[in-house]
């Protein structure tokens, strides 16, 4: 279980994360959703001990984490937003080094590596240098690497950014398989659809603060399951309603082009942060 208590990160000019409180249960697939600069990466980097926190606490299974506590770090697997593979090494070599650093015995290491290369579909390219990989392949290799030491929790910072629609869907399938294996996952994204498809619970974060926290369905219900979208004064407006009847009634009062559609997480986001999420 991951407990984040009053976590704060201040940089010179901005408070990137502002008294964040969050609990992620074992086996949960948790999504941290927010626009650019919301503080998602900073949060993940503090959990993975890359960025020192300003104040607050991060507790995993009852133990506060710290860069110099080597045991607890083995419980986490991290896939950062930015590629950090050894470019001059092959996929297999990248995994081998990781396995050695995480004290996995040779036999088990070799077997796990073969398994994960298969799982991520990289077996055929395992001897090619990482720098020759496409963006999607690099991401997959980073996921394979993060899973190699069998962590209890996986931190994924925007795992599908820069992937085309097909590759993104394949990545989702891969993540769903992880989920069904019972791994605890903290995923950050600004793709609303990604959070809706994958996450048990979603935290909306804006300017370093948690704005809302619930299951995707509850969040949508809370806002109103039905959205009326219309165009007026040069802007698109949205109104939310509990039922289709209410929405119909309201739509009848509007002149011009009106669209009635089911609400989605993006609407929730819009309502709580008053800004559109870029995707």
């Amino acid at each position: 279980m991951l407990n984040i208590v009053d976590l704060t990160k201040e940089y010179k000019n901005v408070t990137a994360v502002d008294h964040l409180n969050l609990t992620i249960e074992d086996g949960e697939f948790f999504g941290l959703l927010g626009p650019n600069g919301a503080g998602k990466t900073t949060t993940v980097r503090m959990i993975s001990t890359i960025t020192p926190k300003t104040s607050g606490d991060i507790v995993i299974d009852g133990e506060s984490i710290d860069r110099n506590l080597t045991t607890i770090k083995a419980k986490i697997g991290v896939v950062p937003q930015q590629n950090n593979l050894e470019n001059e090494m092959s996929a297999w070599e990248n995994l081998e080094v990781h396995g050695i650093l995480y004290h996995i015995g040779k036999e088990k290491r070799r077997q796990k590596i073969a398994e994960l290369l298969e799982f991520t579909g990289l077996t055929e390219r395992k001897d090619d240098l990482a720098k020759t990989y496409s963006g999607g392949m690099k991401r997959k290799l980073m996921i394979a690497r993060a899973l190699l030491h069998e962590p209890e929790m996986l931190l994924l910072d925007e795992p599908t950014v820069g992937l085309d629609a097909g590759a993104r869907r394949k990545m989702w399938d891969l993540l769903k398989r992880l989920k069904s294996n019972g791994l605890t996952v903290l995923l950050t994204t600004h793709y609303i659809e990604e959070a809706e498809v994958l996450c048990d619970r979603v935290g909306l974060i804006n300017k370093g603060k948690l704005v809302q926290l619930d299951t995707p369905l509850n969040l949508i219900e809370e806002v109103g399951k039905v959205t009326v979208e219309y165009f007026e004064d040069g802007k698109t407006h949205e109104e939310f309603f509990r039922t289709r009847e209410e929405a119909n009634t309201y739509a009848g009062t509007i002149e011009g082009e009106v669209r009635i559609r089911p609400s989605n997480l993006e609407d929730v986001f819009l309502k709580f942060t008053n800004r559109r999420v870029e995707s």
């Binding site: 993975s48 001990t49 890359i50 860069r67 110099n68 080597t70 083995a74 990781h98």
Partner: peptide
Amino acid sequence: FYKTFESYMISPINM
């Protein structure tokens, strides 16, 4: 630049 340093900071290796 390559950010590989971070992968060592994350890992359980003593700095």
